[in-house]
Simulated scan of single mutants.
Amino acid sequence: MTATKIADGVIDVHAHWLPRNLFTLPPGVPFGQMHDRNGELYLGEVPLSIPAAAMSDVPAILDDMRRAQVGVRVLSAPPFAFPVHDTDGADAYVDAFNTALAEVVAGTDGALIGLGMVTFGDRGRTTEHMQNLANTPGIAGVAIPPLVGTESLDRGSLRHILSEATRLDLAVLVHPMQLPRPEWPDYYLANLIGNPVESATAVASIVLGGILDELPDLRICFVHGGGCSAGLLGRWTHAWNARPDVRRSSTYAPDKTFAKLYFDTVTHDPHQLALLRAHAGVDRILCGSDYPFDMAEPDPVLFATTHGPTAPALTESARSFLGL
């Protein structure tokens, strides 16, 4: 990361921010615009159950950090702001977000770090966005979705981003998009089942696609504890040993590669976090909150240090992931 001052304390690698002038969201998104309705944040006509100020106002973010004893918070865009549709205006939206993010993190004396945004349609333009991020103080990397269309991290535009992130020494944070499916119309299942499945799909594409064989220096983190991937790792490893088609693209068994990835602590379950630690190792677990969403861990440092690594270990691992 371009040299910048970093505050002391536990680093929360998974938190969201979007300035109010970008509540419009990128062109082509299917959700409708975000808006502030009497102080509450809406996505189209859907209430997000959070104050609008929590998403957009830096003083509210810093107040929450003091309450939760977070030393440094890493900000990225909410996933519905990812410009996954290659439409006119997406480049301008990305540039506006990255510029605003750089200004915000520059004014917080090292308490905030940024993960920027890129477009996905044109690889040359994607690289240009990433080169700009690499040259911006306070920006440590890029946040991306686990899927663009039908492609995950082992091919297409997302694979290109991983290659460029490695070349430019940028960290990569993978955040699911809560993609709707017809069998999940109720009970918030697009989030409760969909998000973990999206993340597990992306983890599988890394460990079975041989990505770290080609990019051993890639620093990549999967939020929400990698979704359901830790619980599926034994099945993947068995299949890798049993089936040539499963192991055709990778040199190492999934359980070996899994231990080279980073994961945050937003698991909502101490037992799930313990399983993740057993598979990934202490030095690959990072404190996360998912601030300011309703599915966030309200006391991220307390949860992480009670059920996971110590505060110094969390901080050291996060600094490694961010390239500090």
Rank of each mutant, 00 (worst) to 15 (best):
T4M: 11
I6A: 11
V10N: 03
V13L: 13
V13G: 01
W17P: 07
L18S: 15
F23S: 04
P26H: 13
V29K: 09
F31A: 11
G32S: 12
N38E: 08
L41Y: 13
E45S: 09
P47L: 14
P47R: 15
P59I: 12
A60P: 05
D63K: 12
D63Y: 13
R67G: 06
G71F: 07
V72M: 08
V72H: 08
V72P: 03
V74A: 11
P79D: 07
H85P: 13
D86P: 09
T99L: 14
V105K: 04
L112P: 14
G116K: 07
F120L: 12
G121Q: 09
R123G: 01
G124R: 13
R125Q: 15
E128R: 10
H129V: 02
M130F: 08
Q131T: 04
A140G: 12
V142R: 04
A143C: 14
I144A: 03
V148C: 06
L153R: 02
R155G: 11
S157Q: 11
E164L: 13
T166K: 15
L168S: 05
A171R: 04
V174M: 13
L179R: 15
P182K: 10
N195Q: 10
P196T: 05
P196R: 01
G209P: 00
G210H: 13
G210S: 14
L212S: 00
D213L: 11
D213R: 11
P216K: 04
D217Y: 07
L218M: 09
I220G: 00
I220T: 02
C221V: 11
H224N: 08
G225Q: 05
S229I: 02
W240E: 00
W240M: 00
N241I: 01
D245S: 09
R248K: 10
T251E: 07
Y252H: 15
A253W: 11
Y262E: 03
Y262N: 08
T267A: 07
D269K: 07
L273M: 02
L275E: 02
L275H: 06
A280T: 06
I285R: 05
M295F: 15
P298M: 15
P298E: 14
P300A: 09
P309T: 01
A311H: 13
A311F: 05
P312G: 09
T315Y: 06
T315C: 10
